[in-house]
Write a protein that binds this DNA or RNA. Structure first.
Lengths: 116, 116
DNA sequence: AATATAGTTGAACAACTGTTCATTTGTGAT
DNA sequence: ATCACAAATGAACAGTTGTTCAACTATATT
């Protein structure tokens, strides 16, 4: 960490010094951007949207998104790692469901931004 | 579009048929994931956070983030293209400010998710 | 007019990401 | 036990992304 470096002096050192203490911890910022990274993919957004409607198994999600089961499974793993969905095996199938009550709200707010 | 394809049959065709009409337009989904893609980078998150505190010029942002002006400028361009910040030339410097009232709210909600 | 400074830009490069393909695992049905 | 099927996995590949570097533009100062 801290391996990059500037190539210039501050122009308004007072502003920099005022803002600096209000910056969140580097660690937190990376967690935050990692979260958005997970949302920043068309396939994963579709999966989240679908699961908001109903829990579904991998095969049905693959049919709905018109993709291979493998591709869907890979992306579900990313969502699972990010704790956004949870998996539950039932009979032959693995059913996925949303596992975070913030996701819906964030999707809605983001949609407001996109739609205006 | 629609160039991918499934490798399986639906397992619960009724669920798929129930969910499908509620899926947003492909176009909208891509705009949405593009928005999150912009937020999904540590440098850009830092820039947005800093600009939430105060408008700042490129050089000061570079000092604050400990990066080169060039790297900062490149990322500011991404944020400008996404309409999240706006630039205003004043004297020798170009001052950047937030240009979207949704951003703060979305950042806060995402922070809730990350922090729990 | 000449110089210095702030910011932008494009090419290049390494690092990362998403899908495909082939294979494997685990479970239910015969 | 064997077979069929749903899902997971790992390697490989192409496409994308972020930073660096060098060059360039535009403006302010002398």
């Amino acid at each position: 960490m801290e391996n990059k470096r500037t190539d210039c002096e501050a122009i308004n050192i007072d502003i920099v010094n005022k803002v600096r203490p209000n910056m969140p911890e580097m660690n937190l910022l990376y967690e935050l951007s990692d979260f958005f990274k997970v949302m920043g993919d068309g396939t994963r957004i579709q999966l989240l949207w679908a699961l908001e409607e109903s829990e579904m198994c991998v095969g049905d999600l693959a049919v709905l998104l018109n993709m291979t089961k493998s591709a869907v499974s890979h992306q579900l793993k990313v969502l699972r790692t990010a704790k956004l969905v949870r998996a539950q095996k039932r009979g032959k199938n693995v059913y996925y469901a949303l596992d975070d009550h913030h996701v819906k709200h964030i999707l809605e707010k983001a949609l407001e931004h996109v739609c205006e």
